[in-house]
Design a protein around this nucleic acid. Structure first.
Length: 224
DNA sequence: TGGCTGTACTG
DNA sequence: CAGTAC
DNA sequence: GCCA
DNA sequence: CTATG
DNA sequence: CATAG
């Protein structure tokens, strides 16, 4: 029984990745578009795709035709995807992260990869600093500078979470903390307490006579 | 079988 | 003008 | 690849 | 003492 | 940590 119950989100991520890799590979654009649309629809789908699969109604989902339905079927029943494995051999999946760089698209990523063997962000940055990029066809000083700036903005991009997502989780954690024996008070701190629009982490303040048992219990919580 | 968005920038 | 990215 |  | 910056 | 409430 090697069945795997992928969540809608996981399925979406898989097809999203397939789209990105195919695009770098130079596949027909409309095929990529189709994979992206399917991925979006799977992510937003109300109800479990897994259930739909059990009913054999996958193609009822918008954007899902025979080809994609077959792939979802393979994923659910075998836990992996041959197509994905083959694709990963042709195109290094690490190339996908390069698409995150502003002003960098599939064409240039493929160009850098085939011409100077760029496979990841670090290599790209090094090549850009060395001025190797502006020598390639279709590239100039401006393009190279933009890419360098893009990498910079990417590293500065703080991975923060919107408050509306973090708030309920913090509330739940605090409620549990207050129910621990020995806990006098528990409250939120940091940017969460200040109601900032986004938070980088959850700062929880706890007052207790003896802290060690509390820490022990807290770190044992399922959601920690 | 034909269509899948339109536009600004760069080389 | 063609190619590329958003 | 999917859809009309 | 608590909230706020 | 200092300051205002």
């Amino acid at each position: 029984m090697t069945e795997t119950r992928y969540s809608n989100q996981e399925l979406a991520d898989i097809f999203q990745t397939i789209a990105n890799l195919l695009e770098i590979k130079g596949e027909v654009i409309y095929k990529i578009l189709a994979y992206r649309k399917a991925a979006d629809n799977l992510r937003d789908y109300g109800g479990n795709v897994y259930t739909v699969w059990q009913d054999g109604k996958l193609t009822d989902i918008p954007g899902v035709g025979k080809a994609i339905a077959d792939k979802i079927d393979e994923l659910f029943s075998t836990g992996h995807l041959e197509f994905m494995d083959k694709l990963s051999e042709e195109v290094p999946p690490s190339l996908a992260e390069l698409l995150e760089v502003p002003d960098l698209g599939p064409k240039k990523v493929a160009l850098f990869w085939k011409e100077i063997g760029i496979t990841n962000l670090a290599e790209l940055e090094a090549a850009a600093r060395a001025g190797q990029l502006q020598t390639l066809p279709g590239m100039g000083q401006k393009s190279e500078a933009k890419i360098l700036a893009g990498i910079e903005s990417l590293s500065r991009r703080t991975t923060r979470t919107p408050l509306w997502k973090a708030w309920p989780l913090a509330e739940e954690l605090l409620t549990k903390l207050k129910n621990f024996p020995d806990v006098e008070k528990a409250a939120a701190g940091g940017s969460l307490r200040r109601m900032r629009e986004t938070v980088g982490d959850l700062d929880l303040l706890v007052a207790a006579n003896d802290s060690s048992p509390v820490m022990q219990a807290f770190t044992s919580l399922p959601e920690v």
